[in-house]
Amino acid sequence: MKMINYLASEEGQYLLMWGIEGTNWNMEDGKHVPNDDLIEGFQTDFDKTILDTGVRKWTWFVKNGNGTDGTPYDVSQYKVKETRQVAMNHFGENDRWDTAEFAGLTPAGSTPDGLKWQKIQDIYDQEYPKIVNADSHDAAMEEYDKMISEMNDAGLEDVEKVITQNYQERMKLWNE
């Protein structure tokens, strides 16, 4: 528990996600500042940088957001927001969308509806290639109708109710 508490602490987060002070980053004016080669490494070869430096190799108990000095807990997100904003300025108003509100709405795996959801995913995984590889439009539609029928039999309506309920609960939280 002491190790878990340490890794979940701010100091532990920076150790896991930024590496070693003086090697991977330095403290300047009270803020964490990553070495340029670390940032460049994450931008050019993310996986190799993890292997070479050990930074982000263990992503246990990771917190999102920023530490008390305002820098992100995850060094790979350092100044990414600024870079993203520059990129977003080149997009039109309808060229992008945020799908965060739809993530993680499916039923919990250990519930009866979660088991139905798993069965529905299994049906999709088995049937979708048949639809894509069908010889004709009619054959594809036949496979699609079969897939939907099997999903309905597996409890799709119940799963959709859970997803809708989870979405409505999330929107209540987000709109408070």
Rank of each mutant, 00 (worst) to 15 (best):
Phe46His: 15
Phe46Gly: 11
Phe46Leu: 08
Asp47Gly: 04
Asp47Gln: 10
Lys48Ile: 05
Lys48Val: 05
Thr49Ile: 08
Thr49Asp: 03
Ile50Thr: 13
Asp52Ile: 02
Asp52Gly: 03
Asp52Ser: 12
Thr53Asp: 06
Gly54Tyr: 09
Val55Thr: 03
Arg56Ala: 09
Arg56Val: 07
Arg56Thr: 09
Arg56Gly: 08
Lys57Thr: 10
Trp58Pro: 01
Trp58Glu: 13
Thr59Ala: 09
Thr59Asn: 10
Trp60Arg: 07
Trp60Cys: 05
Trp60Glu: 12
Trp60Met: 12
Val62Thr: 14
Lys63Val: 00
Lys63Phe: 00
Lys63Gln: 11
Asn64Thr: 15
Asn64Pro: 03
Gly65Phe: 00
Gly65Val: 03
Asn66Thr: 15
Gly67Met: 01
Thr68Leu: 08
Thr68Phe: 02
Asp69Ile: 02
Asp69Gly: 01
Asp69Glu: 06
Gly70Trp: 01
Gly70Ser: 02
Gly70Arg: 05
Pro72Tyr: 02
Pro72Asp: 02
Tyr73Glu: 02
Val75Ser: 03
Val75Phe: 00
Val75Asp: 00
Ser76Asp: 10
Ser76Thr: 15
Gln77Asn: 08
Gln77Val: 01
Tyr78Arg: 01
Lys79Ala: 12
Lys79Trp: 12
Lys79Met: 14
Val80Arg: 12
Val80Phe: 15
Val80Ser: 04
Val80Pro: 00
Val80Gln: 09
Glu82Pro: 00
Glu82Trp: 04
Glu82Thr: 10
Glu82Tyr: 07
Thr83His: 10
Thr83Val: 12
Arg84Pro: 00
Arg84Trp: 08
Arg84Cys: 09
Gln85Thr: 15
Gln85Glu: 15
Val86Asp: 05
Val86Met: 05
Ala87Pro: 00
Ala87Met: 13
Ala87Asn: 02
Ala87Cys: 07
Met88Arg: 14
Asn89Gln: 15
His90Leu: 15
Gly92Ala: 14
Glu93His: 06
Glu93Asn: 14
Arg96Thr: 08
Arg96Leu: 00
Arg96Asp: 03
Arg96Gly: 00
Trp97Tyr: 08
Trp97Asp: 06
Trp97Thr: 14
Asp98Trp: 04
Thr99Ala: 15
Thr99Phe: 11
Phe102Leu: 15
Ala103Gly: 06
Ala103Glu: 14
Ala103Tyr: 06
Gly104Ile: 07
Gly104Gln: 06
Gly104Met: 04
Gly104Cys: 05
Gly104Asn: 07
Gly104Thr: 05
Gly104Ala: 11
Gly104Asp: 04
Leu105Asn: 07
Leu105Gln: 05
Leu105Lys: 08
Thr106Tyr: 07
